[in-house]
Amino acid sequence: MKADGLTIKELTEAVGGGITPRMVRHYHQLGLLPQPMRSHSNYRLYTETDVIRLQRIVALKQQGFQLNHIRQILEVEPPNNPNTNLMLQLQQQYRAVIQQISQLRQTASALEGLLGRDRDCQIIQAEVLAQLKLIEVETKVGLGELEKLWSGLDAQIHAHPEDFHESLKHVLPDLSARSEIEQDLISQLVLACGDVSLASFVKLSQQAIAASRDALKLGCEIIADIPTVAAALDQTRLFHLGCRIETLIDNPHVTTAVEAEQAFWQQQQWRKKLQQVKKGCIFVVGYAPSVLLSICQAIKQQQIQPALVIGMPIGFSHAPAAKRQLMRTNGAWIVVEGTIGGGLLAATALNSLVESVIEKPDCHCYLSH
């Protein structure tokens, strides 16, 4: 640091991060940077404190903070320890971002439902996706400076295994209004897909937890829509509970949502099988939206009386509609709203409930059966 201070150009060179003299003058106007002292020639002269403060502004901008938020952060930070409130501010910003993602996802799911009904809209959808991809590329360019931060943090990951519960405490939204079992279920679903914004899309009927636990303790039948979902269920615990696993579309060649839909529509045997399920069973639907639609219709017509329906099929028109119909039934249900879903999420939901009923036994007796 020069004894008489740095010029505005020298300041920007010391800070880096793409900062220009024009941006510095703008930060002065906004009150983010205090006005510096002047030389005899009326040039701005900056100190080490100014360098540190501008570095903080750059770092917070790269984390996604708006300039007005940055000013508020700098106002409340103790000058001798600028990192005291940083984690709290980052957590608040993170929660705000996740809330925005959830709102955007809700809108996207609604648009997907409309686009999925009309083939002519697929061209528009492709154009929108292309624009989103362009935005993604531009965003990555803007976040290039964060690579230095990631490099430093990534170097530490070899020192210990990841503590998932510790991470979830910082990233999950406030779930204190939900029961402990619901909190665990949502945490498991987030871990299954790696997307924290999923938490706001998980919906449970009022009686879902109690009804499912009672049914599991009685050794109820578990019915998955396709073999892929059945294979992901916690067979060890279910065996010890006396719960038998059945597959509705019992065809090992059916492994995707597309195949499941076609099989259910083309072969009446699966529809007839659906109407013959035992009272008090639990449905786990992760792929075929038409299966969930048929379940809702059968419940409405009082043809079946399941203890619980886990409805998480994938789809862009039928799936959101099927989930809405399920949520309008009087039974017990668990859904992930919108187009989001999948066999892993559906199986994870049931496994979480099963885990709340019985500890995992050490033996694997089911393997001999």
Rank of each mutant, 00 (worst) to 15 (best):
A224Y: 03
L292E: 12
D4F: 12
L104I: 07
M327V: 01
Y46E: 03
N68V: 02
L54W: 05
P78D: 12
I358R: 13
A332N: 05
E259G: 15
C193H: 03
R105P: 00
F316L: 05
A96S: 14
A347W: 04
L104N: 13
E182Q: 09
E10S: 10
V291L: 11
W333N: 05
N81E: 13
A199Y: 06
M23R: 02
L216Y: 07
L204S: 04
I358L: 15
K273A: 15
A126M: 04
L111S: 10
A319Y: 07
F239I: 06
E180K: 10
H165T: 14
I8P: 03
L149A: 15
Q268D: 14
D154V: 11
I181M: 03
F264N: 09
H369D: 08
C243I: 06
K2I: 12
I223A: 03
Q325A: 13
Q206A: 11
N330E: 14
K272F: 00
R22I: 01
L45M: 11
V97L: 12
Q156A: 14
T84K: 14
L33A: 04
D174N: 14
L191C: 08
S200R: 09
I340R: 15
Q305G: 01
R213D: 00
K217D: 08
N68L: 01
L218V: 02
K272V: 11
Q303L: 10
L308A: 02
K323F: 03
D154R: 14
I209S: 02
I299V: 15
H26D: 07
N81D: 15
N80P: 00
E261W: 00
T348G: 09
G311D: 06
L293A: 14
P227H: 05
P252C: 09
P161W: 09
V15C: 00
Q207N: 14
S356P: 04
R237S: 10
L6T: 09
A232H: 10
H165E: 15
I222K: 01
L233F: 08
S200Q: 13
